[in-house]
């Protein structure tokens, strides 16, 4: 099955990570919660699958384009 990288949609701070490697997820399940402009936004999964890798942890500041999670 193809691997998909989920990238940060914008500059922001990771305030929660909801998945760990090995978790199986459905489409639109929240992967992490991103905070930008004092607003919290869930970053949902683009497809169903299994989490292969999580690259960020709580408190990280991410640029847009940063890879957050790989799904397979």
């Amino acid at each position: 099955m193809a691997e998909t990288d989920v990238i940060a949609p914008m500059v922001g701070k990771i305030i929660a990570v909801h998945v760990k490697p090995g978790d199986s997820i459905k489409e639109n399940d929240p992967l992490v919660t991103l905070e930008a402009m004092k607003m919290e936004m869930p970053v949902p999964a683009p497809q169903a699958g299994t989490i292969k890798e999580v690259y960020v942890s709580e408190g990280d500041v991410v640029e847009s384009d940063t890879i957050l999670v790989t799904i397979e």
Binding site: P9, M10, V11, N28, A36, M37, K38, M39, M41, P42, P44, P46, S64
Partner: peptide
């Protein structure tokens, strides 16, 4: 600022959870 931009994000995400309009 930034309340109006937040509204764009919120209303957009209602329709498509993977759409990020804030920036």
């Amino acid at each position: 600022v930034p309340m109006a931009a937040r509204m764009s994000q919120i209303v957009g995400q209602e329709e498509d959870p993977r759409n990020f309009l804030l920036m």
